[in-house]
Design a protein around this nucleic acid. Structure first.
Lengths: 304, 304
DNA sequence: TTTGGTACATTAAGTTTCTTAACTGGTCAA
DNA sequence: TTGACCAGTTAAGAAACTTAATGTACCAAA
């Protein structure tokens, strides 16, 4: 009693399966949905189970959803039934595509994903430096324990990397790179420290920095964007659809500390008049507001 | 015989574990590395196994790597041993960070990842329309079976979405959005079709389009980038480190069809003189070459 | 100092999952 | 028609896993 599986069984009413079995059935259903077919061999190889076990799994799935699966004797594989309805997974396009991206980013090996018939695909390459996991770990530990940590950081301003104490309290992804949001005990302000520029870490120590004083991190700002007015009315409508705008406006809320990056990422850092509208579909509607807020951040010199 | 697990056992020599057991031991080691600790309860809850089983797993891991793990009676959890060395996983910073991104992208629920002590973190938000999995599936099926498919596409040029036949042969991610690389039977050229702008699909049919004729997709181009010369020498050195440049140059090869996107993504689509060097760290060294190639693509009007 | 709570440990009996081993059947291509 | 391939099956036994009950160490609150 008090066992989580027991609870699940109680609440759902369906016969509870063991974790491994459930993964295999989900795998099978995933393949059925996205690829329309699978072989018993797929299960045997992916999970390292025996033939009889794979057969048993397939039967089990057949019992759960008789219409979802059919064996095609001439093609020699199991195929999606005509009125297939997933019962274990909720197919998610973004999730499927994220798996492809993980492959192209080198984060996952094709064999680790459930995708078998990878479509021909490619992604715009992004140069990226590898990060030593132990270095990232030091930062994470400092965040978790709330300590200051001494890091050797290569800043843009000093030719040689320097050792300094920082108190990291969060990680941030600017769309390109990861950085640690931290209080710099050298410059006495909160800044972003790019993880790959942290060349080494030494000891940690307690401190009395309160992350809630990192205003640029805690406070948010709302970008109001609209279609580029230099586009034709038709094009503007399409852009509105693309971005899910309402009445020609999309509001995007983000941390003040991300304002600079978001602007850059959306191409809003360049005067629209300098670019062809077909190259820059959206414009910033409240640039005055954003400018002011961004200025207030820059006064804290947020770019390390 | 011919069984993959058998083979693994033969080749590695170590006692082969079942898939589920191995996942749990990896989970445990993952937690030890990245978070320094775990509770037996974590295993019980994540995998839905019983207390004795979780204890057995922990002991099994202890047998495999006695120095990696220690129980802290007063803190009431298992902690990383002093000379911890992972034996089942190879810690990968990018992989860890990719999990965080998946969470913030909504692709994975926090409970689905192995990260328990999520550090405070955030990412620059990107507006994105959700894609109906069935629509993506139709495209994938057309790619796999090599068929033409009739799609209702919202182009930038026509106010109303139109039905047209396309022959998709690959998916592409431009750093922002996914599109299908396809031959358009209406315009008689290969183009990019943004997946979210495909509003519906109808039937499929055979065709005689050869993807190898999609030159902009098949051919590649090499970007040569260097540090922005308007930066100070020190800054230029840092940028070289950031991008892993050799002798001040980084070569990035990409498909011709991605040339436009890559340029935009790297901020190389705007004249560097219009921007402060601190806002644009890199410049394109072979823009003449790129311009010419890009022009040749545009003649095929690659922007749908 | 006792009391209670929590988290881990362990044992025993029994169930489910899974393996090995040996065998059958259908389809297709050489 | 033979072989290759992929599926299916059965039976015996091993491994993994469960429930149930009980014990122990540590800490914090009464």
């Amino acid at each position: 009693m008090g066992d989580i599986r027991q609870n699940q069984q109680d609440s759902s009413g369906s016969p509870e399966l063991r974790w491994g079995v459930e993964r295999r059935l989900e795998f099978l259903e995933f393949r059925l949905f996205w690829e329309g077919r699978f072989n018993r061999k797929d299960i045997v190889e992916f999970f390292g189970v025996s033939n009889p076990q794979a057969s048993a799994d397939i039967h089990r799935y057949q019992d759960l959803a008789p219409n979802n699966i059919r064996y095609d004797g001439s093609q020699k594989f199991f195929v999606r039934g005509d009125d297939f309805k997933p019962i274990l997974i909720t197919p998610d396009a973004n999730r499927y595509l994220a798996q492809l991206r993980s492959i192209s980013d080198g984060v996952l090996a094709p064999r680790e994903t459930w995708v078998a018939k990878t479509p021909a695909f490619d992604a715009v390459p992004l140069p990226r430096r590898t990060v030593d996991p132990k270095r990232l770990l030091s930062i994470l530990e400092a965040i978790h324990t709330g300590s200051a940590i001494q890091v050797q950081y290569q800043s843009m301003t000093r030719p040689e990397p320097t050792w300094r104490w920082i108190t990291p309290h969060a990680l941030g992804f600017d769309g390109f790179r990861w950085h640690a949001r931290a209080y710099c005990h050298l410059d006495k302000i909160f800044k972003d420290f790019l993880i790959p520029r942290i060349l080494g870490t030494r000891k940690t120590k307690p401190h009395d920095i309160d992350a809630s004083n990192d205003h640029a991190w805690q406070q948010t700002i709302t970008f109001k964007i609209g279609p580029n007015p230099n586009l034709t009315p038709t094009q503007q409508t399409v852009v509105e659809l693309d971005y899910g705008m309402k009445n020609g406006v999309l509001e995007i809320e983000t941390r003040l500390a991300f304002s600079y990056y978001l602007r850059k990422r959306l191409g809003l850092d360049v005067d629209p008049s300098l670019r062809d509208a077909s190259d820059q579909h959206i414009v910033l509607l409240n640039s005055d507001e954003i400018d002011v807020s961004q200025q207030s951040v820059l006064e804290g010199d947020s770019n390390a």
